[in-house]
Design a protein around this nucleic acid. Structure first.
Lengths: 252, 252
DNA sequence: GCAAAAGTGTTCGGGCTACACCCATGG
DNA sequence: CCATGGGTGTAGCCCGAACACTTTTGC
């Protein structure tokens, strides 16, 4: 059986400040290669799969600093490419500041999501300087046997393959779940950050605006205030915070 | 690459009533074969892996009624057996009443768990009529690269392999997570059930006693009262309830 | 002064916990 | 009568949502 792994690598980028009085807005990004596929890696029987994935990322970006977890194993014959019969996906989060070298066949695409709640459909636009990819993923509820299956389908012709579309879709859902239950949000940020930066990570992943006064109180036990202050722009400067290493959350 | 799937099949069993005034107590169970391994199935490149898993379960129990979800893909060379280099685990929940035929090389083992919180260690005893298997799984926190890895290790010699021990451990953790966020608890029960039965499912999976008055209110939106009443024993009879099909939960 | 972000405090409501209390059953 | 489970109600607490308000900055 031919088995490959692939990487769904999330990162963020800061937009230019639109107004001297405004924050820089963050955008969620995902990495694709020149054929609109997720980067793949080979799996050997000599090492732990996760180690193969980690080595591939180090090879790509020349850094050991990133978050990684297994996402899912895909084995639908409809998805098979000529090379692979089984695809094991790993979700990766990387802070661009830690990237030492950027491979020239890979690039980050901004992700724009529109949720059509009633339709259980998600419109996704991936966009970089040269390309704009649009696709729709519909969740179909299938009452199969005793239980409810949620099946995601690509409902339009798109420049990305159905497998890639569905993996990105699943990756975003996993991010949403993890950000509420773990400390992954910090993987997007520098060691020291402003609370508004952390809030922006939550907002772009959850795709909704949060009230800063409440967000502040909610994440207070997870962070530590430093005595450093950053003057950003034409508004009150903020203290820098770090992750509170003593904070322990129930891990799934 | 040689790839197999395996099944971690959970079910429950009722103990004999100890006292005419007492409820029958439920026990959580997991299925092992005569060599203390989880049942495996072959993966073909002709069909969706989940379908292979489902077909295997139907073949074993002659029923289409069960819950199934992918658990994890294991690829640590330390775990490889002579047959398999990659193992894709599926978590299954089955109600014994739906089992039409019981394979004679497989049997259900009662699961007893003792949590040693401080040690981050779990003592697990698997027991059936003939055999008693004891093992300990320790969770080691490894600060690897930028992030925290939680690695589970079998810390004693045991009749089960390390991979089997870890899969059962992960399966129980997944059950605990799912029971709080989905409706899997109902997969253990008949279509009609008493609230105390549902509560027992929660209690054996979460491994703690719940206050019935509060449990009742918590699950109230998920269930529907029927007009049927069951006289069980020397206490007030209870109404039968069913799952409320209109109830929709946020799925992970 | 103004607009925007940083930061603090207060109110309100829903959900969970603990617990008191009544009902129905078989022995 | 009793013990046990079935079922209802209530008071207290915590947490999140909404929002008012002050401070600090650059222009």
């Amino acid at each position: 059986m031919k088995v490959y792994g692939n990487l769904i690598i999330f990162s963020t980028d800061n937009e230019e400040r639109k107004d001297v009085r405004r924050l820089k807005e963050k955008k969620l990004q995902v990495m694709l290669d020149e054929n609109n596929n997720l980067p793949i890696f080979e799996i050997s029987n000599k090492e732990y799969i996760k180690t193969s994935a980690e080595n591939r990322i180090e090879e790509l970006f020349k850094t050991p600093k990133f978050y990684i977890e297994q996402l899912y194993t895909w084995g639908d014959p409809n998805y098979y490419t000529k090379d692979s019969e089984l695809m094991i996906s790993y979700l990766v989060i990387i802070n661009k500041k830690n990237i030492k070298e950027m491979p020239n066949n890979l690039s980050f695409y901004d992700i724009f999501i529109e949720n059509e709640e009633k339709e259980m459909q998600q419109n996704i636009i991936l966009k970089n300087d040269n390309k704009k990819i649009h696709y729709k993923v519909k969740t179909i509820v299938k009452r199969n046997r005793e239980n409810i299956d949620y099946i995601n389908k690509l409902v339009n012709k798109s420049e990305v393959s159905e497998l890639t579309a569905i993996i990105i879709h699943s990756g975003i859902k996993r991010l949403r779940n993890r950000i509420e239950n773990t400390n992954i949000a910090f993987s997007f940020l520098d060691k020291e950050f402003a609370i508004s930066e952390l809030q922006q990570i939550y907002e772009i992943i959850l795709d909704k605006k949060l009230v800063s006064a409440n967000f502040r109180k909610k994440i207070e036990p997870m962070i530590k205030k430093t005595d450093k202050v950053v003057k950003e722009s034409a508004y009150r400067p903020s203290y820098q915070y770090t992750f509170n290493e003593e904070f322990i959350r129930n891990w799934v």
